[in-house]
């Protein structure tokens, strides 16, 4: 019996030789338990060693292998070929990013945005190790835990129409992380973080389309984080107007 195959239409772009991206078709063996990343690795191994793409863990943890699969942002390591078989599968780099090469996007803008929300615990009073850890109750942990599960795969940036139209918008993952630290009882960096999260480029850029939460492979629900951020920023704004003397 002839081996079953499936066609992958892969977007190629090698800046040193291509003026524009184009599509190249590869026929790969069809296996029920193969994911799109397995097919890409098979192409790299047996058909075309020049194909470039990012990947690492193969188990939906590292967030490296995000690509557009048939027009939707997906982690290629948990997108099975059987979902599309026998139809061809189109694989493109994540939209809303510059392309570095083939399926590899340039993530500099994302990393800059991530840094802006200061995704670390800021303390005014630092405890010495002898004084012990910063304890938290389960209820305090529960407030932000879901928003801390982000793996920085950037699928939400490819899904968000606002990111596409306004490149300066901080975007779903960075804002979810900013809100995550605003909600953390151990954090004391409210004011400096709110300068970014509560800015026009921060939560107020969001028009609540909600696609970020639809595509998130870790169910972080960035759209919910941003709406909570809007409530926090609004309460903060009214507090600053009503009690200007109350600022730390």
């Amino acid at each position: 019996m002839a081996e079953e195959t499936i066609v992958l239409r892969v977007q190629r772009y090698r800046p040193e030789q291509d003026s524009d991206p184009y599509f190249q078709d590869y026929e790969v063996p069809y296996r029920k338990d193969w994911v799109v990343l397995d097919a890409l690795n098979w192409i790299k191994e047996y058909k075309d060693g020049t194909l470039s793409f990012r990947w690492s863990c193969r188990m939906g943890v590292c967030g490296s292998c995000g690509m557009m699969v048939n027009g939707r942002p997906r982690l290629t390591c948990n997108t099975f070929l059987r979902e599309f078989y026998p139809n061809p599968i189109t694989v493109e780099p994540l939209v809303n990013f510059d392309i570095e090469r083939d399926l590899v996007i340039c993530m500099d803008t994302f990393l800059e945005k991530l840094k802006k929300v200061k995704p670390w615990i800021i303390r005014r009073e630092v405890k010495s190790p002898e004084e012990g850890p910063y304890n938290q109750t389960p209820a305090q942990l529960y407030r932000y835990k879901q928003f801390s599960m982000c793996i920085n795969c950037m699928l939400c940036y490819a899904a968000c129409p606002v990111v596409g139209m306004h490149p300066e918008f901080l975007g779903p993952a960075a804002l979810a992380l900013g809100v995550r630290y605003l909600l953390d009882s151990r954090d004391q960096g409210w004011n400096e973080r709110m300068e970014e999260v509560g800015s026009h480029e921060g939560v107020w850029g969001c028009t609540f389309v909600g696609e970020c939460s639809e595509v998130c492979p870790k169910h972080v629900d960035p759209a919910a984080a941003i709406q909570q951020g809007k409530v926090l920023a609004t309460l903060d704004w009214f507090k600053r107007w009503l009690m200007p003397w109350g600022q730390k």
Partner: peptide
Amino acid sequence: MARSNEPAVW
């Protein structure tokens, strides 16, 4: 970046 006055409208 500066905080937005959007909360008034929002």
